[in-house]
Nucleic acid binder design. Structure first.
Lengths: 351, 351
DNA sequence: CTGAAAGCGCTTACAG
DNA sequence: CTGAAAGCGCTTACAG
């Protein structure tokens, strides 16, 4: 170590000062510390990460699992996670779990977790969509320092979730403020937590606004024979039941006289907008439409889509903060283990 | 090393067999190799990467530079690069160079290159958009094993580029096949290579189809006082000159009687579609519209947008292949250093 | 053909 | 308070 020579001290002393070895009790006088620090700066000294790891220091490396990094929804989270990792002076490995192109998308989840373990990451950020089946319990076992985006429903697991009920509440409140009184909600599943949350938020805000809950304004796609997304296809969220927009128009707008529709996500909202125009219904004049996700497509629908942004930067901030706490073995209380991120309404012209 | 014990050989012999140390001349008999391999499998032996690196073996790690991983355009490339890296048994670090949120986006390019160097990556994949100013020459100097997406215009640099002239040729040929005869082209810059390529492909295919080149059908935004993208704003490609779609309609469709418009990218195409509808012009009946990029928004425009897909999976395959050649010190001839990827026409309803 | 030793650059005990 | 030594798990020379 040239730094030691330049500063006129032994390698060990220099090491203890520069790399904070031996805990915090640095073993050198003020002046020596100064000399060493200066020498290091002068020589642009960077400790060898491989050697540090070999001696058991942490890698300052996170692993990020994502079904497909190309998914425009996750991409924003990937970016924000890197931003946060950089703040903690860590780097991030990225790993798609759906590796193949072509028709088949075998899930390489377990294999990629092993790769991360082999590389010696300090912890794992798992942003694989909830609807992909994979061994999340096994992941936690292999790497206890794991934080999920979306609740994996595993006792003790740390996760960050968007406040989906809050998203619907904000949508309802906004629409009421715009004078809408017959606000409809479309969800996909009768049983999945994500959808139950939506209904919960919907009812809560209607009540808060003094509006009645009208069952005819609630459309659950699964109840009319349409299946929610599962693991079978690719990762795209485009595989909507093609008939759903028409059903929304028939049941909610024509039959139930809805003057606003809160869609389960932006994709449905975008399809609905197109269908509404084809039917000669004006948005937002005849009916207002609100989405969820704030997808890149929203500025290009006609009219541009009012939606709710899941605030990925806040999610990322919380995920990395939690991960660092896990890495440093700080205990997380039950309530700290699930962080709810408040989404934000983004108003455009559709509502 | 327990494997050696189980197989009844010394640590070194086991090492030479398992990790391919000492070049290829493994120093053990058939039977011994068998025993060692079996023992390793049984104990699920994985060599310690940190130790290997400390002894100078490669890290099996790529660094990926991207302006913003959240950019839906780059996200697909990120995904495909990971797929290819995995095929080469490498992992990929990701680093945004535009780190901040808020208004300011200071470019951390150099810092992130240093981080990669410090981590000891084998090579770097640089997918930072061409219009971002950053020290690409310095990158190559710091890490000669670098492959770019988009041509950095540095002598000797290895890069993969989409065949943008070919993309325009395919668009023109397709439109001619659909009976269009007055095909217009919109590009942004008068001088940037990317735009010159477009014009080149446009003229070449018109000639090939026996159609005349009509200068009134070519609109260069810069020539009418609109600036192409630069590094000043965020990374979004949404910052179009808002008037451009109207100018396209006035000059190309009304004045020059174009029956088809090839747009510089999907964003312009999407804005144009909306404007055309507002003006009561039918697409594709009155005028056909073709984009470029195959962005996720294209299925949601009305009508869905015919476009050209840059084939990121092929680009990724070539980038990683080239990077591996650089890492293994294989010489790349001048012509091998620039790989052109043939894009693919994706037909939807707009043309 | 096989084994013992040195060393990569650190950290962490232990000795002066 | 400071220095010399051992060792993390490998690879690579060198010796038997």
């Amino acid at each position: 170590m040239d730094v030691a020579k330049l500063a006129g001290v032994s390698r060990q002393v220099a090491g203890s000062v520069l790399n904070g070895a031996m805990g915090n009790n640095s073993r050198a006088s003020e002046a020596t510390v100064q000399r060493i620090t200066q020498a290091a700066e002068q020589l642009n000294y960077k400790p060898n990460l491989a050697a540090m790891r070999l001696r058991g220091r942490r890698a300052h490396l996170y692993g990020l699992l994502v079904a497909s990094a190309g998914d425009p929804l996750r991409a924003m989270l990937v970016q924000q996670l890197d931003v946060e990792a950089a703040k903690h002076e860590c780097q991030m490995l990225i790993a798609n779990t759906l590796l193949e192109e072509g028709k088949a998308y075998p899930n390489r989840f377990d294999g990629r977790v092993e790769e991360f373990a082999h590389r010696g990451v300090d912890g794992i950020l798992c942003a694989v969509h909830a609807w992909h089946r994979c061994d999340r319990a096994g992941l936690i076992k292999a790497q206890p320092n794991t934080v999920f985006y979306d609740d994996p429903n595993i006792p003790g697991a740390a996760c960050v979730v968007p406040d989906i009920a809050g998203a619907v509440r904000k949508s309802v409140a906004y629409l009421v403020g715009k004078g809408r009184r017959r606000i409809a909600l479309v969800t996909m599943s009768r049983t999945l937590p994500w959808h139950l949350e939506r209904v919960k938020g919907y009812k809560a805000e209607l009540a808060a606004q003094g509006l009645p809950f009208d069952r005819s304004l609630l459309l659950v796609a699964e109840e009319i024979g349409m299946q929610p997304l599962d693991d079978s296809g690719s990762d795209t969220s485009l595989d909507y039941p093609a008939e759903l927009p028409q059903v929304v128009i028939d049941r909610l707008i024509v039959d139930a006289k809805a003057d606003a529709v809160i869609c389960h996500d932006d994709f449905l909202a975008a399809f609905l907008l197109r269908r509404l125009r084809a039917k000669g219904l004006a948005v937002p004049k005849d009916v207002a439409v609100v989405g969820y996700l704030d997808h890149a497509l929203d500025s290009f629908t006609d009219p541009p889509l009012t939606t709710v942004n899941p605030q990925y930067h806040l999610a990322a901030e919380n995920m990395v903060r939690m991960l660092e706490r896990l890495i440093q073995n700080e205990p997380l209380s039950r309530s700290e283990r699930t962080v709810r991120v408040e989404p934000k309404l983004v108003t455009r012209e559709s509502a």
